[in-house]
Design a protein around this nucleic acid. Sequence first.
DNA 1: GCTTGAATTTCGTCG
DNA 2: CGACGAAGTTCAAGC
Lengths: 224, 224
Amino acid sequence: MRLVIARCSVDYVGRLTAHLPPATRLLLIKADGSVLVHSDGGSYKPLNWMSPPCTLKEAPADDGTASWVVTNKAGEELRISIEEVLHDSSHELGVDPGLQKDGVEAHLQILLAENAEVLGEGWRVVRREYPTSIGPVDLLCKDAAGASVAVEIKRRGEIDGVEQLTRYLDLMNRDPLLAPVSGVFAAQEIKPQARVLAEDRGIRCVVLDYDELRGMDDKESRLF
Amino acid sequence: MRLVIARCSVDYVGRLTAHLPPATRLLLIKADGSVLVHSDGGSYKPLNWMSPPCTLKEAPADDGTASWVVTNKAGEELRISIEEVLHDSSHELGVDPGLQKDGVEAHLQILLAENAEVLGEGWRVVRREYPTSIGPVDLLCKDAAGASVAVEIKRRGEIDGVEQLTRYLDLMNRDPLLAPVSGVFAAQEIKPQARVLAEDRGIRCVVLDYDELRGMDDKESRLF
DNA sequence: GCTTGAATTTCGTCG
DNA sequence: CGACGAAGTTCAAGC
């Protein structure tokens, strides 16, 4: 990894065209040739960049300035004109073991599948990732009366999720072996618009409490 | 901006929990206190990070190792344990003038509006961004026979775009002054699922050639 | 300030 | 390898 602090201007021509006027920035060149241009603020996203695989060519000019040209196979080009270098160092980092995550949608689905009673007393899970021709339904349940319920789980419940569940319900209700199937939209947080749309379509909304679900899981583990 | 190359392990507890085992990485501390942890590969996204506004507290331990704790108002926490520092430098960058972009979807819309004949012979644009109560339709056209057509334009045509257009069509077809309104889903690239859904709903799919549209535009400019 | 839709999205998984 | 969906999405424009 090479770190360069330099006064530079940057031009990108590819999926769009973009330009950065001259200013002092961090230029980060990774081992795979990818380049990140960072300013001293904003978020984790660079001002501009080139993703790997790509190649960097350094072309010194007569006037002492340098030009870096980073290209990839698709013909996208990142051109960096360097006026003044304030820092330049290289470092060996090696391969990173990578990030271990916990607590995303997949986890929510597992927890809810193990605690279907959160959705209603006497409810049970028929199966997770119930397959349909347009994709898998997160949970297929049966309520206390034995009626089928399709459950769509999201971390954040927005309008797209309601549309998705609606498509599943349309399809499943055409299957005489399954119909009638009702719907539950379950999420840690449900946006008002999504709730209105869901309820207008007769879909019940359930707000999930991740910590509570995890707690129930712990209790269950302790009991058995 | 402070650049630190160090052997470290990282833990994040916030919207999820995540852990990075010990390895050598770049720690980037921006002027606003935000922190980025980068490895020597991957894309522009850091392995882990804390977005501003946040505060960094450095707590030296007895055994020579240091611990950085970065927290924000929401109670999220990024904890970095540093075993060995290989590089540490600070730099004044100043405020960045920022990125100037030159559009994608907006540009597509302009080009298509100027070349409606791409959609069909004798077609004309009634207006761009035609307002409805649930949002603007990209293009409202009339075909050669004078029938109304709503056009949804995307760079990448996916299922969401079809849903969006469907909602517009449902609404517009309730307006007796407008109905009947048919739909066209236009994109540089249309995913198979989106195409199937669109055509199932009687929406025509049109793949746009950005370069060709631009070329037509040039020709037109030269003629007048 | 909140909501909505796009992104040079990136990143994973699954077929 | 492509397609599809999630993301600590982030980002920008509208209201």
